[in-house]
Simulated scan of single mutants.
Amino acid sequence: MSLTLVCSVAELPFNQAYRVVLEGVPIAVVKDSAGDVHAIGDTCTHGDISLSEGFVEGNTLECWAHGSAFSLKTGQPQSLPAYEPVPVYEIVITDGNVFIDPTVTKEIPV
């Protein structure tokens, strides 16, 4: 596992996506209104659009261009036009810092 320091939890604003690129992999990091931190693929599967430029609503991140929303927990699309999920990455929080390994995605049961 190759964990990379992304930021501190305190640096993340609530309900906004923060874009990072780790080893060439674009990832949207989000701290939801409950304070839980999520990391999902930053590229909408409907179009080559950065999801981190979109809107966090509840447990979803919505693409600003076409309105597809993706679950922060599973990466599954919650609305059309997207029908393919985005990857969800494992996060390790240590001493208030967020670490992500861009080569490790969560296995999400369908």
Score class of each variant (00 low, 15 high):
Gln16Ala: 10
Tyr89Ile: 10
Ala69Thr: 11
His46Val: 07
Lys106Met: 14
Ile100Gln: 02
Val6Tyr: 04
Ala10Lys: 12
Val6Lys: 02
Glu107Ala: 10
Cys7Ala: 14
Leu61His: 04
Val29Tyr: 05
Thr60Asn: 12
Leu12Gln: 04
Val25Gln: 12
Leu5Glu: 07
Gly24His: 12
Leu5Asn: 08
Ser52Ala: 12
Asp42Tyr: 11
Val30Glu: 05
Pro77Lys: 03
Lys106Ile: 12
Ser68Pro: 05
Val56Lys: 10
Val9Met: 02
Val37Ser: 07
Thr45Tyr: 01
His66Ala: 02
Asp32Asn: 15
Leu80His: 02
Pro87Cys: 04
Gly67Asn: 01
Pro102His: 04
Asp32Val: 12
Val98Met: 04
Glu23Gly: 07
Thr94Ala: 13
Leu72Ile: 08
Pro102Phe: 03
Gly58Thr: 11
Glu57Ala: 08
Trp64Phe: 15
Thr74Arg: 06
Gly35Glu: 13
Glu23Gln: 14
Ala28Pro: 09
Pro26Glu: 00
Leu12Thr: 07
Ala69Val: 01
Thr4Pro: 00
Asp101Phe: 02
Leu12Phe: 06
Glu11Thr: 08
Ala65Val: 06
Pro26Val: 11
Glu84Leu: 13
Arg19Thr: 01
Gly58Ala: 12
Ile27Phe: 10
Tyr83Glu: 15
Cys44Asn: 09
His46Phe: 09
Gly75His: 03
Leu5Ile: 11
Pro81Trp: 11
Gly35Trp: 15
Lys73Glu: 15
Leu61Pro: 03
Leu12Asn: 05
Val9Arg: 04
Met1Pro: 13
Asn97Asp: 14
Gly54Pro: 08
Ser52Phe: 13
Pro81Gly: 00
Pro102Asn: 07
Gly54Met: 09
Glu107Thr: 15
Asp101Tyr: 04
Ala65Met: 13
Asp36Asn: 14
Phe99Ala: 00
His46Ser: 03
Phe55Ile: 14
Gly24Glu: 07
Gly24Trp: 14
Ser52Lys: 05
Cys63Pro: 07
Ala69Ser: 15
Lys31Asp: 09
Ala69Asn: 03
Asp42Trp: 10
Val9Ile: 09
Ile100Glu: 00
Val29His: 06
Gly75Phe: 07
Leu80Gln: 10
Ile40His: 08
Ile100Val: 11
Ile108Ala: 01
His46Pro: 07
Ile108Gln: 00
Ala17Glu: 03
Asp101Arg: 06
Leu12Tyr: 02
Ser79Thr: 15
Val104Met: 14
Tyr18Thr: 05
His46Thr: 04
Thr43Glu: 04
Lys73Cys: 13
Ser79Glu: 03
Ile27Pro: 05
Thr43Trp: 09
Lys73Tyr: 11
Val110Thr: 06
Leu22Lys: 01
Gly96Asp: 10
Lys31Pro: 11
Cys7Gln: 09
Thr60Asp: 11
Ala10Cys: 00
Tyr89Met: 06
Glu84Cys: 02
Glu90Ser: 09
Gly24Pro: 09
Val110Tyr: 00
Leu61Arg: 04
Gly75Tyr: 05
Gln16Arg: 14
Glu57Lys: 12
Glu53Val: 01
Val6Arg: 03
Ala28Thr: 05
Ala39His: 08
Asn97Phe: 13
Lys106Ser: 15
Pro109Arg: 07
Gly47Asp: 10
Gln16Glu: 14
Leu12Gly: 08
Val86Ser: 03
Ser68Val: 04
